[in-house]
Each structure stands twice: as structure tokens, then as C-alpha cells.
């Protein structure tokens, strides 16, 4: 329970950074923090105390593996989600570079004022 709460604190910090800060790079950092804590939360749900990693070795007992192995399903989904996060981060970086080239500033309120 306390592990979940500490994880949610990171997500709340990311949400605050995303809403309240005006710098574009700070907003990107907020998105990245939310993404990390979300991935970690899914893995924490699938963890089993004294569990085994979901990779079978030749000398391993099959029955024991199926009883004590951790959940492989969230791991598989998070594995794709991490790489998608890198792709969306690159897309956000491209937007930030383009905005900086056009307006010569990273300030969100400044950009809004210039648009009129």
C-alpha cells in the first residue's frame, strides 16, 4: 500500500508540473514523469512476493514456476509502452524545437500572446 502511495506522489508531481509551469521543457518533463510512474505502477500490480522472473530455464521446476512466477502480462504491455513513450517524446521535442525557431522563446504565455 505505501509503495503505491509513494508512486502516486511522483505522478501527482508530474501532473502539477504539467499544469502549473509555463516553460515548454518543464511541461515535457512533467509528461515524462507521469509516464514513468504509470509504467512502474503497472509492474507493481503484477509483482508477487518472493516471485520468480517469467523466464524459464532448463533446470527449473515447471510446477513451481507456474505457482511462483510474477505476472508476465503487465510486463509485456509496459515493454511496448516504454518504446512508444520514446516516440512521443521525440514528437514533443520536434514541436518544441519548431516553436522555438518560430517565436524565439519557450514561454507558453508569451507564445499565446503573440498569436493574438
Amino acid at each position: 500500500m505505501i509503495v503505491y502511495i509513494l508512486n502516486v506522489i511522483i505522478m501527482a508531481l508530474g501532473l502539477y508540473c504539467l499544469i502549473a509551469k509555463r516553460h515548454i521543457i518543464k511541461k515535457i518533463i512533467g509528461m515524462v514523469l507521469i509516464e514513468y510512474s504509470m509504467n512502474l505502477f503497472l509492474i507493481l500490480i503484477g509483482y508477487r512476493i518472493n516471485g520468480l522472473a517469467p523466464i524459464l530455464l532448463p533446470e527449473m521446476n515447471r510446477v513451481q514456476f507456474s505457482q511462483y512466477g510474477v505476472d508476465p502480462l503487465p510486463q509485456a504491455l509496459v515493454l511496448t509502452s516504454i518504446v512508444i513513450g520514446l516516440g512521443t517524446l521525440a514528437l514533443m521535442a520536434a514541436y518544441a524545437m519548431k516553436l522555438y525557431e518560430k517565436y524565439r522563446t519557450f514561454d507558453m504565455s508569451e507564445i499565446r500572446r503573440l498569436r493574438g
Binding site: 509504467n39 509492474i43 509483482y47 522472473a53 510474477v70 510486463q75 516504454i82
Partner: peptide, 11 residues
């Protein structure tokens, strides 16, 4: 430490 070595490498 959460027994997810695949994701640790990728991360």
C-alpha cells in the same frame, strides 16, 4: 528488483 529483467534492459 521487481523481477522484470526485460523491461529493465529496455528502460
Amino acid at each position: 528488483f521487481l523481477k522484470a529483467p526485460d523491461i529493465a534492459i529496455t528502460q
